[in-house]
Design a protein around this nucleic acid. Sequence first.
DNA 1: AACTCCAGCAACCGCTCCCAG
DNA 2: ACTGGGAGCGGTTGCTGGAGT
Length: 331
Amino acid sequence: MGRPPCCDKVGIKKGPWTPEEDIILVSYIQEHGPGNWRSVPTNTGLMRCSKSCRLRWTNYLRPGIKRGNFTPHEEGMIIHLQALLGNRWAAIASYLPQRTDNDIKNYWNTHLKKKIKKFQTALDTHIASDSNASSQVMSTRTHNNNSDISSTHSSLVRVNQSSNSSATYASSTENISRLLEGWMRNSPKPASAAVAFGPKSPSQVRQLGDQHGNAGPTSTCSLLQCNNQAKSEQESCDMISHEELESLFSFDNSSMAWEKSSSESTTLHGSHSTQAEIRLCSSSMNETKVKSENNQPPFSFLEKWLLDEAANGQVEDLMGMSADCCSATIF
DNA sequence: AACTCCAGCAACCGCTCCCAG
DNA sequence: ACTGGGAGCGGTTGCTGGAGT
């Protein structure tokens, strides 16, 4: 459907936003709340198209955005979620409310993709150089089932969560954003909650539900939002708790989802709603995604390697691990 | 000091989806 | 049922600053 590009009009400014423009946009949104982007340029006099305003707000000025370095914990989540959901950055971002989809996408493209590529290269090299051993491993693998993987590597999953929390708050607009935080917290406007949590509209939630197959009305995001609605407004601005994340992404769970993806509706232990979410993702998504990208190692192992601070000896580490773990049938 | 190369990131583009009329 | 406009998403581009020579 060919839609006339909204930003092609004469007089529409492009390029980096100036602090002045930011302030204008922020003060307008302070007053009217986010949404109705069409009217923003008209009412503010900004020489920007509505799209650009929305993007600037959601990716940069919106309060609650965390900028700067990604923690290993966040990296792990992104890797997991990317494996689970594919390149659906908005969906991934909904699990990391402090990060924007754009941010996550950029981080994936500039950092994680390379790391994974490196990892796979190292892996290929290793497999090629050790084909005899691997054939033995394959036969073992067939018999042992994947529970071995689970037991052997559950310790690897607890990704370095404590270190490297020094997110660098870089830009001047950070200050604008911070100024807004108080307003957003106190604001009675319903839009604020949605904004604080992320740029998810009901239609997006619906859309996600559709995209996730027949997840129905309880799509991943709607569940997540319901879960968070039960919490205080303050809490809704925070990231998902570590406990939830642990339950979500502990190796046992993810590997179970992985293993059972093609056969049955995965039933994970526990009754936490976030686990239900991931179950929905797993059961609907795994069939298409995981199945098609089969034969990849469990991501916790990958993460372990990726997040290893001492990644200098990547191949060596891999060799070392393989020596330790081949009996446990990783590959 | 000047230049080149490259990584990172903000912003844009084009497409799809949703919904109101 | 159809259409057009608004909004959102994912891919891509291009600017900027730092590192290397």
